[in-house]
Amino acid sequence: MSTTNTLDRTSGVGLGIAMTWFSLLVLIPLSAVVFTAAGGGWDLFWRTVTGEQTAAAIRLTVGQAALVTVVNVVMGTLIAWVLVRDHFRGKALLEVLIDIPFALPTIVAGLVLLALYGKDSPLGIDVANQRSAVFLAFLFVTLPFVVRMVQPTLAELDKEVEEAAASLGASRVTTFRRVILPSIVPAITAGAALSFARGVSEYGSLVLLSGNLPFRTEVTSVRILSSIENNNLAGAAATATVLLVISLAVIVLLDVLQRRVSGRG
């Protein structure tokens, strides 16, 4: 029997304080972005986001984020699979490696990537100021999302179901495709959504790595920042609204999925 309570006085006051803080910190400021964007009228909004340089930035960001998400879906699921099903020395180390991009300050992440893939690259691969730099930076910062969503689902998967499938004559590939994959698809989708959202909103790791060249390596966040620095807050807000819409879409998708995957609330 679940016992959730209707609010008593203490919880009511607590909720009031929490909501006030949440509104002051998150809701009101984010609404301000949308209002400011709307304040200039639809024409200005449309002109801003379809302006050549901004549109190029949005295309680059969304395109690279989508590409990275595809890679993450494959590699993330693979990594999760190996971490859950395989046992070997040094696995704990891999676990730590996966979380590093999440914890590492983004500016440091950019510097780190520059060390291996910059002009002094020991590998002879120099992506600095290239489009591939954007791809690489996104790949680094979004690494944990699919892995960390899929891992627990995979761990909880009932081994007996796989054994049942095998006993019914399914090959390992068929078992994976028909039995395992369908049950981890919501987790993969959730991870992909987070990874896409993170990619689209990335800024810090690109600062040193991509050179922020207009039409070539300038991403949406950088574009917004230069609008802010030019004191064009309305323009910044218009472009920011595009990013916010993407974030919101991801949140909605996640909410639907999380109810199925882990069941919060």
Partner: peptide, 12 residues
């Protein structure tokens, strides 16, 4: 909405 800050660009 609580999860929103995770997917909003720091610049935004």
């Amino acid at each position: 909405l609580i999860d929103l800050p995770l997917s909003v660009s720091p610049i935004v």
